[in-house]
């Protein structure tokens, strides 16, 4: 299936609702960590320019904090677009971003279970 179609289907988002105001990127707490910003995710998916997004580290910088979803005046839900692109990337074979063998090095004594389960849910299939 066409990548754009796949992402639209996974996210359930109508990217055409975007009016290019940039409020999502104005509110994003991870903005400076991202190569592509929330409004660019929406725009690039709409224009079918998906490859750069699939290969970008920005996919793993979104905090899923829903600030962009809450504040978008058009109800676009950019976080769902980011998640859909991330899934489109990690669902490909061998593309897990987080692998079990990496975990021991990343955790400490206090790491809550919540962090591990959510990281696995977000970063690997």
């Amino acid at each position: 299936m066409d990548k754009k179609e796949e992402i639209l289907r996974i996210s359930g988002v109508n990217v055409r609702k975007c009016m290019r105001c940039g409020k999502c990127s104005g509110t994003c707490p991870s903005y400076d960590e991202m190569e592509f910003h929330p409004h660019q995710f929406v725009y690039m998916v709409e224009s079918g320019n998906i490859e750069p997004l699939l290969n970008s580290d920005s996919l793993y910088k979104c905090l899923s904090c829903f600030a962009c979803v809450e504040r978008c005046p058009r109800g676009v839900e950019p976080a769902k677009v980011v998640e859909a692109v991330r899934l489109a990337a990690i669902r490909q074979k061998g593309n897990n971003h987080l692998k079990a063998e990496m975990v021991p090095e990343l955790i400490d004594d206090e790491t809550p279970q919540q962090l591990l389960v959510s990281a696995f849910r977000k970063f690997s299939k």
């Binding site: 289907r9 899923s64 859909a84 962090l115 389960v117």
Partner: peptide, 9 residues
């Protein structure tokens, strides 16, 4: 699962 799965599929 610690985080809401947003994917529709």
């Amino acid at each position: 699962g610690g985080v809401y799965p947003m994917a529709k599929d």
